[in-house]
Simulated assay, not measured.
Amino acid sequence: MPPASDLRQDRLSRIRDRLKEISRQRYGCNADPVLLTDKGLAHDHFILPGTDRLFRVPKQSQMSLPPSDNLNYQAACFRRAEPGGSTPALHDRIEPDDALPFGALLVQHIHGRPAELPQDILAISRCLAAIHGLPLPELFEPLLSYCNPLDGILREIHQQAEWLSHPAIASDAREMIRAEISAAQQDATAIGNPALCLITFDAHPGNYILQPDDSAVIVDLEKMRYATPGLDLAHATLYTSTSWDIEAGGILTTEQVAAAYAEWLRHVPAAFARQARSSLLAERRVMWLWSVTWCAKWLAQSLPDYHNKTTQNWSKSLSDDALTRHVADRVDCYLQPDIIAGICSEWQDDNTLTALCR
């Protein structure tokens, strides 16, 4: 079998040729699409030269959907978020074919710089508030929603937690994570039905572009759902998120995290802020649990001999070697007992964040 890097280059060559053909036929553009640096496990990105547009080409379906349904879902994410003014516009959709097994979307190319922390965290909070403040539609479909969003995501966590038995995970780490799952289940029972809104469910700092006016635009939208806003606030500020991206991010103090939450509370409608505040800490724990159990799943499912049974595919052959090495390093870090203890102290101890969210 050819090395993973050769498989990736062959796949990218076929994608580039197909995108060039589509660009010529549909948009009158004869230039070669330009591949951007590989930063994510779910998409490749190609700039369409001479325009302010780029192709988002899925490598897989993070939602385990068939290719056409996956493309429908992603297109719906862009359409639902666009009225908030802090996401790229959707311009076109390219159906799946042999060269593009998952199709592609043509979206607005947002120009700017990667997010830097802590300086950009308040802009990120305002970006999320613009999305969370959008009115709820009559029908949530095709986007994911649960009757009780905390119960729903806990079911996802329990599924991913089956991978905690991986031999690379220390027994202490495994026990700490399972104890937090039990505590999160108790929280969900006590909270009942929390505040509900459109969320990105992928709000880590690497997914933002800061524009010249220092406003933040979130550019990765394929996992949006209707759920609780604290999941996004957590995903934007947890250590497992702020240290995830190769280019963007940084480490936040508890005081800086609290400032990010306070900024969000100021920028969403007042009644919604009052409704959401009391469950933000519980949602922070839940988002971390989803992330850390995903790490356990990735350890197993990224191996060459893992037999994938769905369109969700974490194979290292789909991504650049530098990216997969970076992900492996981050996953190893996040599953260390001392890192787990430090993160959990954010909601277990008395601090500026817990005081704000009471």
Rank of each mutant, 00 (worst) to 15 (best):
2 P>I: 09
2 P>R: 12
4 A>G: 02
7 L>W: 10
12 L>E: 04
15 I>E: 13
16 R>F: 00
19 L>M: 10
28 G>V: 08
37 T>D: 10
38 D>E: 11
41 L>S: 01
46 F>V: 07
50 G>H: 02
53 R>C: 13
59 K>W: 06
62 Q>F: 14
66 P>S: 09
71 L>W: 02
84 G>L: 00
86 S>H: 01
86 S>C: 08
90 L>T: 07
95 E>P: 01
95 E>Y: 03
97 D>R: 03
103 G>C: 03
104 A>W: 04
108 Q>R: 11
109 H>E: 11
109 H>I: 12
110 I>N: 12
110 I>D: 14
111 H>G: 15
115 A>H: 01
119 Q>M: 14
121 I>N: 03
121 I>H: 05
121 I>M: 08
123 A>M: 04
127 C>F: 01
127 C>Y: 01
128 L>N: 13
128 L>C: 15
129 A>M: 06
130 A>G: 00
131 I>W: 03
133 G>T: 07
135 P>D: 11
138 E>A: 00
138 E>G: 00
141 E>N: 05
146 Y>W: 06
147 C>T: 11
149 P>K: 04
152 G>I: 02
152 G>D: 10
153 I>Q: 13
157 I>S: 01
160 Q>W: 13
161 A>I: 10
164 L>P: 01
164 L>A: 01
170 A>P: 07
173 A>S: 10
175 E>V: 05
178 R>I: 09
179 A>V: 06
181 I>T: 03
186 Q>A: 08
186 Q>T: 14
194 P>F: 00
197 C>K: 06
199 I>C: 15
200 T>W: 08
200 T>I: 13
200 T>P: 04
201 F>T: 05
203 A>V: 11
204 H>A: 08
206 G>K: 14
212 P>T: 12
214 D>F: 11
218 I>L: 10
219 V>T: 09
226 Y>T: 00
230 G>W: 02
232 D>A: 13
235 H>F: 14
236 A>F: 09
239 Y>C: 03
243 S>Q: 07
243 S>R: 14
245 D>P: 04
247 E>R: 08
258 A>V: 12
260 A>T: 14
263 E>N: 12
264 W>V: 00
264 W>Q: 04
268 V>K: 06
271 A>S: 10
273 A>E: 07
276 A>Q: 06
280 L>Q: 00
282 A>E: 08
284 R>Q: 15
288 W>D: 08
288 W>R: 12
288 W>M: 13
289 L>S: 04
294 W>R: 06
302 S>Y: 02
304 P>S: 01
306 Y>W: 10
307 H>R: 14
307 H>V: 13
310 T>R: 12
312 Q>G: 00
313 N>H: 06
316 K>S: 15
320 D>H: 13
322 A>E: 14
323 L>Y: 02
324 T>E: 04
328 A>D: 15
330 R>Q: 05
334 Y>G: 04
335 L>C: 02
339 I>K: 12
348 Q>H: 09
348 Q>N: 15
351 N>I: 05
352 T>D: 15
352 T>F: 11
357 C>I: 01
358 R>F: 09
